[in-house]
Design a protein around this nucleic acid. Structure first.
Lengths: 412, 412
DNA sequence: AGTATTTTTTTGAGGCTCGAAAAAAAGGGC
DNA sequence: GCCCTTTTTTTCGAGCCTCAAAAAAATACT
């Protein structure tokens, strides 16, 4: 039910807004913050004074030296205090686990990576590895453990809409692992379980806000096909699960066998295994197999060398993606698309058929104006997204909490 | 850019919230409002006192007599003052134009309907008819014209996302008619141009909030296939146009000819003309034709009588709708669906194939839990939706405006 | 050095919401 | 019939928050 706005919520929200403005802008002056938030100078002054007293922000005299040529009292840049808090990101992907500790200003202060056989690992061991790698980072004597305010874990696969559990993942036969609860209980630090493609979208929004602002799509072209969707500037998630199962939209009813067991999904034509299967001349009913990134890169090279089954496989992948995107664009209006993952490096092979297919769909009216970016490496994006997610949580929930007995307001 | 919350916004929003609570609950007491909004009694008392002074609300002593058995001071019901404002709804559909005047409490106080040949009518005449029918209602001596605060026009077809213009419609070859601007200029009353399926969704939310609250889908099965989508309790609209062109998702790449000129759209299998074409044994390439509601009803009767091309046509329609819904449910999670329009009356013929198709898609995991409602008559729904839309506009934009010099606060 | 310019802080006023207490309006019990 | 209890509504004072304007601060220009 919609609920009224309490008086104290106001300060809370405006605090969060100031923090967000500083995080976005880097080192804005109070005046800049006032301009972007629309609040008055006095309000900004009061709030930032509080935040500095609480150690959340710091004044950094060193504003851009170029600006010092201006007349008048020089602006004082406000920056996030790196020591105000820290967050931990955990990214679990196929046979690979990586952790990073990130300070409040967003700098990586420590990391650790580890190979493991996720496909065969039993439940307890997989959970154990994740907990252990976090524990090792937290036990680092250089780290002030008390300052770790959030753990964000990203995983390939479907998570629940409350960001608590992994429901299903291609990297393990295991299902329904409540990683967020497990980590929270283990370390007494608030945790979240995020979907990989959603984190990619968050990272893109952070990396290039000019291009990826209000509406855009991040598509992971890897073993499976995943999607992160941002609408009106917000991550779009399903009501129960992490959302957009773009890879499992139906491309051809009753068509090729998909890893999910159904037939005709987009992924059954555009996933790594599908491209491989098609290039090798195997049946569309052939059981999906794991194909490594080096093999896929070799396949792309072969496809570029001349017309043949390899090039045809990429063409079919492009067609499936194009019709899928076309249907998506029929529902939401066209938006910028980022292609991420190993097959994004072969996007030159995919794009022609993809554009042709889009042009045949409702979204195709603007097919020429739709632009694609490619990024072959998904892992850094996922980690960055987790970091931003976690930091935003700290910004909003820890440093601008619902009810807080704020102390020492007028320190004078 | 996200903007701070101003202090005066607070009262504005809480006013809007009180009005909304009264509109939803009928005749709530101040205590009930305080409970549902979470605001304090004193705030509610102050706001409702203002609203009564301004003639927006009225006290209606006559609370449910059943409640008078309770001890204590009896609650005073608050109701919307029907005379506080009025709105006009205009619904333009195939060969049919209807207008209604509705008071602030939501009661219809006047209406007029008119047949006209929308398909052949030239631009100026179509606009002229719409303006003229509104003018006749506004000239009604029984009506206090000054109180008309909003005109909401609903039309079958695509509108722009700002609710200003009709971009395209199946009921006329004309395109890009800025009806909202035209009506606004003509009558100096704020106007909006709404999409029919979106209004159906708004009406469903109002009629049965228990079932249609946060996430649901309204699908119009008529000449074309349209969709209204509500996510998180809000109408989902595209960034440029009115949104969900569900009917033009691709069902079979390169398949049957659609009215939109492309091939394989859901509509090319499930629209009236598609069912008719299929039942008559015509080619999938046959030019779409207009089929009247009586013919469609006759077709459904024939299909129920025995297996044959008619039944097969409905089966195919169900299959197309099922795969479309399945793809939609892959993107958003499954939600209740309302089928509206003449073919909703033949839903018994459509449902088996539809459910079978859904079960083959990603959304199919929950296919048994997905429930369908049917409503054969779309026009009342569209009008109701327009009325609610217009009234909500008055609630929020007129009676809780951004900046207002409120007068006579403490009348004592 | 003095003036101009721009940023930041301070101050006072006005509004809003909240909690507590008072007032109002019934029904119930004796 | 009168007083007490219960519940709703209003009133009142306090505490915050924001805003606008003025004051203070810091630097460039002349």
């Amino acid at each position: 039910m919609s609920v009224g706005i309490r008086h104290d919520d106001l300060r809370r929200r405006n605090r969060a807004m100031v923090i967000a403005a500083v995080r976005r802008a880097g080192q804005p002056s109070r005046t800049e913050i006032a301009a972007t938030t629309g609040l008055s100078h006095s309000t900004i002054s009061a709030i930032s004074s509080d935040l500095i007293d609480e150690g959340i922000l710091t004044e950094s005299k060193a504003n851009e030296p170029a600006a010092s040529l201006k007349r008048g009292r020089p602006q004082i840049g406000l920056a996030l205090n790196p020591e105000a808090a820290a967050v931990v990101t955990v990214v679990l992907s196929l046979n690979f686990l990586s952790v990073a500790v990130i300070d409040y200003a967003g700098q990586v202060v420590a990391e650790e990576q580890r190979r493991l056989d996720t496909l065969t690992m039993p439940r307890e061991q997989l959970i154990g590895e994740c907990v252990a790698i976090v524990r090792r980072r937290l036990e680092d004597p250089d780290l002030d453990v008390g300052s770790v305010a959030r753990i964000a874990m990203g995983i390939q696969g479907i998570t629940d809409s409350h960001a608590r559990a992994m429901l299903w993942s291609p990297i393990t036969p295991l299902t329904d692992i409540p990683f967020a609860d497990i980590l929270e209980k283990e370390f007494a630090i608030p945790a979240a379980m995020e979907n990989d493609c959603n984190m990619m979208a968050v990272a893109l929004q952070w990396r290039d806000p000019a291009r990826y602002r209000d509406n855009f799509i991040a598509i992971l072209l890897s073993h499976g096909i995943g999607m992160g969707l941002v609408l009106k500037g917000e991550l779009f998630m399903g009501t129960h699960s992490s959302g957009g199962e773009f890879g499992h939209m139906i491309h051809r009813p009753g068509g090729a066998l998909c890893r999910c067991g159904r037939r005709g999904c987009v992924e059954a034509y555009a996933g790594n295994y599908a491209i491989w299967r098609s290039a090798m001349g195997l049946s569309e009913d052939a059981e999906p197999t794991d194909v490594g990134d080096p093999e896929m890169r070799a396949l792309a090279i072969k496809a570029r060398q001349g017309d043949g089954p390899e090039r045809e496989a990429y063409r079919r992948a492009g067609q499936a993606l194009g019709f899928g995107l076309g249907s998506l664009f029929a529902l939401i209006d066209p938006a910028p698309v980022a292609m991420v993952g190993v097959s994004a490096a072969a996007f030159d092979l995919i794009e022609p058929a993809l554009r042709e297919a889009i042009a045949q769909t409702a979204g195709g009216q603007h097919s020429k104006s739709i632009s694609f970016d490619t990024e072959p490496n998904e892992l850094p994006l996922i980690r960055e997204g987790c970091a931003m997610r976690a930091l935003n949580f700290v910004d909003q929930e820890i440093f601008a909490p619902g009810m807080q007995a704020r102390t020492g307001k007028h320190v004078a």
